[in-house]
């Protein structure tokens, strides 16, 4: 074998080994990301179940649970951000990510229902936003709307924003969409039960909130 042929073969093996090692490292990292997402979801799932159980057990004074649900919503929001990042990295065809996304959506719906239940029982006035988006390229303003909601959620921590992928094939989500009577136009918002569509500006979005709702949310922040 000539020196050139030998060098070429060894170089191919080295390049292949480096590429393989990097591919393995990336795969390992992505698996770690999914494992972390899964762990957060498991924890939130237990927290939800715990809250629901707590709510049933202490029927006489269920309102003690309110504080802990606020923390819970924050964690849910963090999970949503991580999930969106992972989906962006691994693509919308990744089965594991889609499975986690379905579980996340279920957790959101359960937290939304719990919040409504607490509001009815304890007389709290939470501001809830159901936000429906699509990442199939058919919603030009969804990214802007999502970013604006992230800003509002950061600025007003008591605001409860629940984001849903409109195209997710999940029975509970489809039921929620039917119950909220959305017409399919995206982005769509349901703010304390009131529907609105499209995103033009942050000011316009804030106009959709009940009068004083954001101020109340801000006040909750300082409490």
């Amino acid at each position: 074998m000539s020196l050139f042929a030998r060098n070429s073969l060894i170089a191919l093996l080295i390049a292949g080994a480096i590429t393989g090692t990097v591919a393995y490292a990336i795969n390992y990292l992505n698996s770690a990301r999914i494992a972390e997402l899964s762990a957060i979801e498991d924890k939130l799932s237990i927290d939800t179940l715990s809250l629901e159980t707590q709510f049933s057990l202490i029927a006489a004074s269920p309102c003690d649970s309110v504080a802990s649900t606020t923390t819970f919503t924050g964690e849910l929001s963090d999970l949503g951000s991580r999930l969106a990042y992972t989906e962006n990295q691994l693509g919308t065809n990744n089965d594991k990510v889609m499975r986690l996304k379905e579980q996340y959506s279920l957790l959101e719906i359960r937290d939304y229902l719990l919040t409504k239940q607490l509001a009815a029982t304890c007389g709290t006035k939470p501001v809830t936003v159901l936000y429906f988006y699509s990442n199939k390229g058919d919603c030009a303003d969804c990214d802007k709307a999502g970013y604006a909601l992230s800003y509002l959620r950061t600025t007003y921590p008591a605001l409860r924003v629940y984001s849903f992928d409109y195209n997710l094939d999940l029975g509970a989500l489809k039921t929620l969409i039917v119950l909220t009577k959305l017409n399919g136009s995206l982005p769509a918002f349901v703010i304390n039960g009131k529907r609105s569509y499209g995103f033009t500006s942050l000011d316009d979005l804030e106009q959709q909130f009940p009068k004083g709702a954001l101020a109340t949310s801000s006040a909750n922040k300082s409490n």
Binding site: N7, I10, A11, I14, A15
Partner: peptide, 18 residues
Amino acid sequence: FLALYFESFLLVTYLSKP
């Protein structure tokens, strides 16, 4: 990958006897 292959070839050639 081509760039990586080139770099690997350079390494092997640099370390070779000639």
